[in-house]
Design a protein around this nucleic acid. Structure first.
Length: 409
RNA sequence: GCGUCGGUGGUAGAGUGGUCAAUUACAACAGACUGUAAAUCUGUCGCCUUCGGGCUACGUAGGUUCAAAUCCUACCCGACGCA
């Protein structure tokens, strides 16, 4: 993997770059399509590519359970397995520590609303007997499979071994994504654990890389945590960027964990001011339009997010005036495309009333057409932002877009 | 013509004296979703409401009862059986 910064955003941390991987280049900043189980839900690779996507992200935990990492390895790696000819990444399973752990069965998101009083009170007291599918142990996490209930103990070493079998171009260290409801004490403990796991991930990664002779070894990103706490975020950025095994460091960085919408920008800035400038940074699991501007301005090179496809499947689509819900009554006789002037396949060929009809009829194509549009919308928004930096009009473009984006609803 | 069974909210279909404005499902309407436990989930769903409650409702019209979607009578409609 090779990363080159082409241009910087004046007075800010933002930059435009080129990330070279064994399976092709990524123009950064870039949006990574999420394909957890080696498929971008409801889309085939041609549709993903035609939406402008350059890179896709699979998931360690899910592919380990099904079909098994060795199957993927023997199929030729995740890219070949899923017929995606471009760059690939895999997440380490660290997010499932949260989604199947603290968040399991609860209405908790990694993005918390700071004004939500129920979340300001740490819920840790009476939490021990709450059902969880992920339990954190000393040197790893015990997962109870959501598929068959079998217990799997995932250590940093195990996660890296799985990811080497999956064979993505860029992989992530095994971390603990903490819940925004955790108190400061717990966040500190979890952070220390994530740092220990980071070093062990790197060590295992280097060991596995040294045993194969490749001109293009897999790249490993370390993950910064620290929740919403400034001191923890800064400490984490420093430690993760300094971790090395025999002088070998992480190839790039993920910024993970939970945020409050209101102070996500400062959290990202704290971290990116410390991380080494010459290495790529990936803001994990973030991807609303406002967040993309925020992240890019503050030095993020890569984003991934389930929203374009999940919202699409669930009937919500992006437009330049904001999100709209396709099943709303007013679209039943709307003969215009999802978005006027949109160049995506869905908008060039179908009307809102047709897409609304598909959703009402629970037709599979509904989710596909909406996902195509949403993925195109987000991927191309990032491309436009990239271009605006190259054209020296990032701030004008940002204002213009965001002013218009809040008009609907 | 006689007999039997049945007519419940947009639909299907529970309920067979009070705990029924009426289980449930679907439809409808609105909303949520940020490293995917998710083609998922939540709310509303007779009318009015100062959210305490009030009013009108289970084919139609009467009746019995403190109380009826539930019991009785007549009528209307439907299905089936016998003529």
């Amino acid at each position: 993997m090779n990363f080159k910064i082409e241009k910087k955003l004046n007075g800010k941390l933002g930059r435009v770059g080129i990330l070279e991987t064994p399976h092709g280049i990524i123009h950064t900043p870039a949006f990574v399509a999420v394909g957890t189980k080696a498929t971008i839900k409801s889309l085939n690779p041609e549709q993903v590519r035609d939406a402008g996507t350059e890179v896709v992200l699979g998931n360690t935990y899910h592919l380990f359970l099904q079909p098994g990492d060795e199957i993927v390895r023997d199929a030729g790696g995740i890219g070949k397995f899923m017929n995606w000819r471009g760059p690939t990444m895999t997440d380490s399973g660290g997010f499932q520590v949260f989604s199947l752990g603290a968040a399991y069965g609860k209405d908790i998101s990694k993005i918390t609303k700071i004004t939500d009083p129920s979340l300001l009170i740490p819920e840790r007291f009476d939490d021990s007997d709450a059902p969880r599918l992920a339990k954190i142990g000393h040197d790893g996490v015990s997962f109870k499979s959501h598929l068959d209930g079998a217990i799997h103990y995932i250590t940093p070493e195990k996660s890296i071994q799985i990811q080497h079998n999956l064979g993505a171009d860029i992989i992530f260290a095994f971390d603990e994504c903490t819940s925004p409801t955790e108190d400061l004490k717990y966040q500190g403990e979890a952070l220390e654990r994530t740092h220990r796991w980071a070093e062990r991930s790197l060590k295992e990664h280097l060991k596995l890389n040294s045993s194969v002779s490749s001109d293009f070894p897999q790249a490993l990103f370390g993950i910064v945590q620290g929740g919403r706490e400034e001191s923890l975020r800064k400490e984490s950025a420093k430690i993760i960027s300094e971790i090395n095994v025999d002088g070998k460091y992480f190839d790039g960085f993920g910024i993970g964990g939970s945020f409050a919408k209101e102070d996500m920008s400062s959290a990202v800035r704290w971290v990116n001011e410390i991380l080494p400038e010459e290495k790529p940074r990936h803001l994990l699991g973030i991807g609303e339009p406002e967040d993309l501007f925020m992240g890019i301005e503050n030095g993020v090179d890569l984003f991934d997010c389930v929203l374009p496809t999940r919202l699409g499947r669930n009937g919500t689509v992006y437009t330049k005036y904001g999100k709209i819900i396709m099943t709303n009554k007013k679209f039943r006789d709307d003969y215009t495309p999802i978005e006027k002037d949109c160049e995506c396949y869905s908008c060039k060929n179908y009307t809102r009333c047709y897409v609304a009809h598909l959703f009402h009829g629970k037709e599979m194509l509904a989710g596909t057409l909406a996902s195509i549009h949403n993925l195109y919308f987000i991927v191309n928004l990032v491309k436009k932002i990239r271009q605006s930096i190259l054209d020296d009009n990032f701030f004008e473009f940002k204002k213009e877009f965001l002013d218009m984006y809040s008009k609907e609803r």
